[in-house]
Amino acid sequence: MGPLIPQGYITGQWEFVIALLIGAAFGFLLESSGFSSSRNIAGVFYGYNFVVLRVFFTAMIVAMVGLLYFDYLGWIDMSMVFVLPTFLAPMLLGGFIMGLGFVIGGFCPGTSYTACAIGKLDGFAFLGGFFLGVFLFSEAFPLFEKFYYSGDMGNITIGEVLHVSDRVVAFAFVVIAIAAFYVTWLIEKKVRANRTESKFE
């Protein structure tokens, strides 16, 4: 039956209502996972807290496996689901910049909003920088427009690149994720054992 809008079950005007609901749910989960605290977020880079990695990896593998089951059951037609086009080099650079912002600022864009929502001043400061960055980016956009659109690989998925089925990719990711959970748990244990001021929420 799904996806609802491309199949015409509901009109595209519902997009914003659905976006609002998903956004509220996303914000709630970020906050309840403790992501409005910079300590939790930046902890990934110092090795004492990998909750970010765990939450996002869990979300990813559950969604991945769930969608593939739903596709099989006929509840959602994955061939109609939009796949974001891949621009490899610009995306790598973008990821690097975002990671840098992550470790310097202690928030990712979504969590800075949840930090604002619970009244954190550093969240507001981050948001100010965020908008300044958006403004500068937009103004300077013509300078790197060519790079921004370079290397368009189209709407491809990992399975299509590697010529394996999406199910194999999902299985591989589940194994990788669980291995990552175990390894990060070991790292966490080691790092925390040496810490004296290890109180964080």
Partner: peptide, 12 residues
């Protein structure tokens, strides 16, 4: 972890 691996294995 076990449940997740079983689910993903079921996909295959």
């Amino acid at each position: 972890s076990l449940l997740m691996i079983l689910l993903a294995g079921g996909l295959l």
